[in-house]
Write a protein that binds this DNA or RNA. Sequence first.
DNA 1: GTTCAAAAATGAATATGATTCGATTGCCAC
DNA 2: GTGGCAATCGAATCATATTCATTTTTGAAC
Lengths: 182, 182
Amino acid sequence: MSQRGVDAATMLEIAERADVGAGTVYSYFKSKDELAIAVLETLMHDLALRIEEVTDTFEDPAQVYAYGIRIVLDTATGDAHWKQLLHRSEVISDAMFRMMGPFAIRDLRRASQAGRFQVSDAELVWRLTTHALIGAALAITNDNVPPGSKNQIITQLLCMTGIGKNAAVELASRPRPEIASQ
Amino acid sequence: MSQRGVDAATMLEIAERADVGAGTVYSYFKSKDELAIAVLETLMHDLALRIEEVTDTFEDPAQVYAYGIRIVLDTATGDAHWKQLLHRSEVISDAMFRMMGPFAIRDLRRASQAGRFQVSDAELVWRLTTHALIGAALAITNDNVPPGSKNQIITQLLCMTGIGKNAAVELASRPRPEIASQ
DNA sequence: GTTCAAAAATGAATATGATTCGATTGCCAC
DNA sequence: GTGGCAATCGAATCATATTCATTTTTGAAC
């Protein structure tokens, strides 16, 4: 249903692909925007779960967080579905804040308790991070930032956790296990 | 021309306000989007110049940067024109990157040379900062983040410059001279 | 198996608003 | 005055999201 991005597709195309009439979509979603948000939320939640599967075995809670945001960045810049969505960045960022927030905020707190991060307001840090991350993904997609800067992007975002520059660099460059696809 | 936000207004309203025919706008701007971008760029550039006026007298280059992003946050959350524009955050962020970038990136470099910041890629830091800042402004406007968090927002963003947590807190809480209005 | 009311689905019609374009106007050089 | 060029106009076009009167499906009751 989100093959080419909800925004790019017309409601007619979406309805056709779903094998329903044009009006039927509206008995499931109040508006096109709401449909887009629902698709986004599904996408986000799925990715969050796949990340959890991998980070389950990590020792360092700071690494759980770092791995998560890196995978989001990789997915947002690599996956065709996501690329289409990127030009509604405030909608994406918000969906990300809500769907992945429970995990991310938990990790920020855990890592703070473990003395790795120094985050007093985890919600705020996560809010800023989502916007910056999606913005960075958009910039890479538009060739405004080279894909090779991904490591540095993650490093900068980790700096917001108060971990300190050197530790951030180290954390961003740790090897990353593959994530389950789809 | 941007009384209520370019996006909210129809092209007919815009044309009317400018006392021209509906089609005439298109001899100046290729599309509504291009018009919105032009308005945005003007807004950004004006603000950048007004900020320069104040920071001209600052001693500490780090404070120049900190003051600038704080004023942008205040303006984006306080000014009616800006609020309307916020829900196209990727467009705003991009205009901000381009129009205020020359100043901001200069300040990031100056402060780094002065040993206050530790920024290796000023463009990247500025890119992330614009997205996070506009995202934060949107969050405040939508009551997702209390306006009282502004100081902390600036603190977190300053952390991306590698200045360190304590120095960031201090920098964000310095008194701020008034800026020229309009 | 038939009946019928409620629920779900339909898609043609509506509404909104960006964009186009042929006609019109204003302007200037000669 | 006149020809021609550029700017301007706004009605017509086009694209799409959304609505809603009608049709179809469902499933409970007999």
